[in-house]
Amino acid sequence: MSAEAFSPPSFGRAVVRVFDLSLGEMLWSRRTLFMAVVAGGPVLIAVALRLAASSAAARFTGSAGGPSFALGGPDIFGLMIWAFYLRFTVPVLGVFYGTSLIADEVEDKTITYLFTRPIPRGAILVGKYLAYLACTSVVILPSVVVVYFSVVPLFGGSVGAGFPSLVADLGLIGLGLAVYGAAFAFVGARLRRPLLSGLLFIFGWEPVVVVVPGYMKNLTVAYYLQGLVPHAAPQDEAMTLLRSALRTFEPAPAAWICVLALVAIWVVTLGAAVRAVERREYVLER
């Protein structure tokens, strides 16, 4: 056999191979069960709302923090997008999946099988990252669409009129999954305890820093995602109240700045993750 006969696959082809391998693995993993529950939660709420709306002359009002106001279907949908998907689902899935991309393989001692193939290490991370993105999008985005069609027609809402908002929401959730996933892929590739670091970031660092005046909030993903939310954020907590109070002095950045910042975070963190995987020596014994 001659050495010239073999040529290793290119970066792109390697990414596709790893993507192909990882997608099936991710879709049929225990974690998908958790994701299905996460995606099913708002669908259940939507179904419950429809039942409540049809069985009685129910009318929902906005909650504490501001004056009560009647909520229409589009308002409820906007609230669910904000409260459930953007504030919970997107960052949590980003942490759970992103930190696991490499850590799972290290923990199962299977990374050796991937690293000994004639493909760049970075392609392994990118392939698995794309599989994460496809896997989460396939489960979460349909859930958003189901919620939209269940909730928006309630109390006189128009499905057609709100459609551009749905498209924007889907794009925003997709972008959020991409950015959080890339950021936590880096954390997972770099740190020994990525899960706790990730949870501290999204539930410790981000909520606090986002309301602090100054430049600190620029070190979060949530700040830029909030700037793109097409719906008004509900005032349901003291923290949100404080945030809205501070916002009177500090308006949200323009949408194009938010998009640019999110893309920059995405590129930088994914690049850093690739670099970390390329250079780091993973110890499998522990």
Partner: peptide
């Protein structure tokens, strides 16, 4: 977090 997010959503909707 999931149970809290569900509760917050329901609270937001129903008041």
């Amino acid at each position: 977090l999931f149970t809290t997010a569900i509760f917050q959503t329901v609270r937001g909707v129903t008041g």
